[in-house]
């Protein structure tokens, strides 16, 4: 009984996670400027990853494996926030100095 409830919850979480990933990808096409795309990608994809990680937790064979999934999620969260900040800063500096400062070749 408990097993089937967990299974249903897992499938629901997986579907929700997939939906978020789908919407995040949609954001890459529907938003017209780069910074809005970063918004979509950072927030929605991290949520999708969170749901999928949560769905995989009952599947974990040991406590350490479960904690590892959580650790990977936290790392991906920090990585995504840092990348978003760095790309946004690069875009902003590009705005301020015009589109210039392009490399001559390469």
């Amino acid at each position: 009984m408990i097993d089937s409830v967990i299974l249903v919850v897992q499938v629901v979480l997986l579907v929700v996670g997939c939906l978020f990933f789908g919407v995040g990808t949609l954001g890459l096409f529907r938003f017209s400027d780069t910074l809005c795309r970063i918004h979509a990608l950072t927030k929605i994809d991290n949520l999708g990853l969170g749901f999928i990680a949560l769905a995989l937790l009952p599947q974990a064979s040991s406590l350490a494996t479960g904690l590892k999934v959580v650790l990977i999620w936290l790392l991906a969260l920090a990585a995504s926030a840092t990348s978003a900040h760095l790309v946004a800063r690069a875009v902003r500096s590009g705005d301020k100095t015009g589109t210039g400062r392009k490399r001559g070749n390469g």
């Binding site: 990933f21 970063i38 990608l41 999708g48 990977i72 990585a79 978003a84 790309v87 690069a90 590009g94």
Partner: peptide
Amino acid sequence: HPADRMLASQLFGTTGVALLL
């Protein structure tokens, strides 16, 4: 924008990680 291309890296960081998990 080159930054749009760089979003690929972020994608791998989230979608790729989810896929591998």
